[in-house]
Nucleic acid binder design. Structure first.
Lengths: 66, 66
DNA sequence: GCATTATGTAACTTATATGTTACATTGATA
DNA sequence: TATCAATGTAACATATAAGTTACATAATGC
């Protein structure tokens, strides 16, 4: 699950810990999502978007790969 | 978890069963997502978007509610 | 009426997202 | 060099997304 969470987070000058607190998960969860090792739930994706002022498409969209 | 899956699906003239087969889940999962009783994973959201030719924002975006 | 299709949902199981605790590594900085 | 902050990750526990089976209802067509 590749995504732009890390870019969005860093552009907001937030640490993983800070982002985690704002969206209500642990630092480990943010780390795993940024590393593409987790398939986050929609609710968490939305919380991350709200925290970095971006939309789902901007942070999580990816074209279908055959 | 409100969303526009049902509208998008019906506009494509797909039954829950057909959409479920295209995205690789069961009919029950589609039903529960449409009813807002499930918090789907990002991967499933993307699959649904691909199936109905829409983006995440079009089908799953919602403004933060305080 | 009787079948058939589409949908809602309940009980139970399985897979996995997420939490908890803990330890290691890297980079900056005093 | 020695902290310390930020990050990666591993083992295990918990919550819940998703599957399986099954049954019910509404709508449609025979």
């Amino acid at each position: 699950m590749e995504n732009k969470v890390k870019v969005a987070r860093v552009s907001y000058d937030l640490t993983q810990q800070e982002l985690a607190e704002r969206v209500g998960v642990t630092r480990q969860t943010i780390s795993l999502i940024e590393k593409g090792r987790y398939n986050p739930t929609l609710k968490l994706c939305l919380e991350i978007c709200y925290a970095v002022n971006k939309t789902l498409d901007e942070v999580f969209w990816q074209e279908r790969k055959e």
